[in-house]
Design a protein around this nucleic acid. Structure first.
Length: 103
DNA sequence: CCACTGACGCGTA
DNA sequence: ATACGCGCCAGTG
């Protein structure tokens, strides 16, 4: 299985309203956290929608939306998370400690 | 084919 | 607390 496939497989397990980090996925797959980010960035919004991959539930270890560095995609991610009930200001998710998946 | 260029996180100083 | 090194994939020109 390719690194990209491994990442997708794990991301699909994250339930609505919960979030996980690049580091967590890295631990599970054995990939480096950085590579996890690379794989997600190579994922188009269109592809994610078709395969029902909840890519927006992946943030950095502090609960900060890293995709904000990319532009439009960051706004979309924040919007999708708000739709799931999360509170966000300036790309920072509030009450992160109680939102981690499997923690 | 070669050379960049990005969604990170941990250990060490 | 803040700074730096490093791991090492996929898409683009």
């Amino acid at each position: 299985m390719s690194p990209k496939e491994q990442v997708i497989k794990i991301v699909k397990l994250v339930p609505e309203g919960k979030i996980t980090s690049y580091g967590r996925i890295a631990n599970i797959t054995g990939l480096s956290p950085r590579v996890v980010g690379f794989m997600l960035s190579s994922l188009s919004v269109k592809e994610a929608a078709e395969q029902e991959i909840p890519w927006h539930r992946v943030v950095d270890r502090n609960g900060f939306i890293s995709s904000s560095k990319l532009g439009e995609k960051g706004l979309l991610q924040a919007e999708m998370l708000r739709n799931e009930g999360l509170e966000i200001k300036d790309y920072q998710i509030y009450n992160v400690e109680n939102l981690w998946w499997n923690k």
